[in-house]
Simulated scan of single mutants.
Amino acid sequence: MTLHVTEVSTCSVDNCAFNHEHECNAYAITVAGTADHASCGTFIDTSALGGLPKVLAHVGACQRGECLHNDHLMCNAHDVRVGPGADAADCLSYEHR
């Protein structure tokens, strides 16, 4: 089981409520998606600002059981990057086993 909480190191999804100058200010994100694809389940497409002013997000849960970094539904990657991909906000650190 992972012993650390993975940081969201960058977010390049400009239209997300939690993106503040390419840093995610949600308390935590959920990595969601479909088979062979991982997306940010916390993404909210709005111009309203959300989140906390000084807290940078971590990965709270990962629903992608087939990801190389998934350990008991927690992310054990050093950090994750969120950005546009197949969806508007994808986990760019996702690696299929």
Score class of each variant (00 low, 15 high):
residue 24 C to N: 03
residue 47 S to N: 13
residue 44 I to W: 02
residue 48 A to S: 14
residue 95 E to N: 13
residue 37 H to R: 10
residue 78 H to V: 12
residue 46 T to R: 06
residue 28 A to N: 04
residue 85 G to Q: 04
residue 19 N to L: 03
residue 39 S to Q: 10
residue 95 E to P: 01
residue 5 V to M: 13
residue 17 A to C: 13
residue 33 G to C: 04
residue 11 C to V: 07
residue 42 T to G: 01
residue 75 C to K: 01
residue 11 C to S: 08
residue 21 E to Y: 08
residue 82 V to C: 01
residue 56 L to R: 15
residue 93 S to T: 15
residue 51 G to H: 11
residue 14 D to G: 13
residue 68 L to M: 15
residue 19 N to P: 03
residue 82 V to M: 03
residue 13 V to T: 01
residue 36 D to H: 12
residue 57 A to M: 08
residue 60 G to I: 05
residue 87 D to V: 06
residue 21 E to W: 06
residue 41 G to E: 04
residue 14 D to H: 13
residue 14 D to C: 09
residue 2 T to Q: 00
residue 2 T to R: 00
residue 29 I to K: 02
residue 62 C to E: 07
residue 97 R to Q: 08
residue 66 E to A: 14
residue 32 A to H: 09
residue 6 T to S: 09
residue 9 S to L: 14
residue 94 Y to A: 05
residue 86 A to I: 12
residue 21 E to S: 13
residue 9 S to H: 11
residue 67 C to T: 07
residue 33 G to A: 06
residue 35 A to G: 07
residue 67 C to S: 10
residue 7 E to K: 14
residue 65 G to V: 07
residue 66 E to N: 15
residue 82 V to R: 00
residue 76 N to M: 15
residue 7 E to D: 08
residue 18 F to R: 01
residue 29 I to E: 01
residue 47 S to W: 11
residue 18 F to Y: 15
residue 38 A to I: 05
residue 18 F to M: 05
residue 84 P to E: 09
residue 39 S to V: 10
residue 18 F to K: 01
residue 24 C to H: 02
residue 27 Y to R: 10
residue 45 D to C: 08
residue 51 G to I: 09
residue 40 C to R: 00
residue 68 L to Q: 13
residue 48 A to Y: 09
residue 38 A to K: 02
residue 8 V to M: 02
residue 20 H to E: 05
residue 96 H to C: 09
residue 86 A to L: 13
residue 35 A to M: 11
residue 38 A to H: 04
residue 32 A to D: 15
residue 54 K to F: 14
residue 21 E to N: 14
residue 2 T to A: 04
residue 70 N to L: 01
residue 17 A to D: 01
residue 83 G to L: 01
residue 52 L to I: 11
residue 45 D to P: 00
residue 10 T to Q: 11
residue 53 P to A: 05
residue 94 Y to L: 08
residue 27 Y to D: 12
residue 92 L to D: 00
residue 38 A to W: 04
residue 70 N to A: 09
residue 35 A to S: 12
residue 43 F to S: 00
residue 12 S to K: 13
residue 77 A to Y: 02
residue 24 C to G: 04
residue 86 A to M: 12
residue 42 T to Q: 01
residue 30 T to K: 09
residue 26 A to P: 01
residue 69 H to E: 03
residue 68 L to R: 15
residue 22 H to F: 14
residue 3 L to G: 15
residue 25 N to F: 08
residue 81 R to L: 10
residue 91 C to V: 04
residue 80 V to C: 05
residue 96 H to Q: 11
residue 49 L to K: 15
residue 86 A to V: 14
residue 65 G to D: 12
residue 46 T to K: 07
residue 8 V to R: 00
residue 79 D to S: 15
residue 69 H to P: 00
residue 82 V to P: 00
residue 11 C to M: 10
residue 94 Y to M: 08
residue 95 E to A: 14
residue 44 I to T: 02
residue 31 V to A: 07
residue 46 T to H: 07
residue 10 T to R: 14
residue 94 Y to C: 05
residue 67 C to R: 03
residue 58 H to F: 14
residue 69 H to N: 10
residue 37 H to Q: 12
residue 47 S to V: 12
residue 14 D to F: 09
residue 74 M to G: 07
residue 55 V to T: 15
residue 7 E to N: 07
residue 96 H to A: 14
residue 46 T to M: 06
residue 1 M to C: 10
residue 60 G to F: 03
residue 94 Y to E: 04
residue 3 L to I: 11
residue 41 G to K: 06
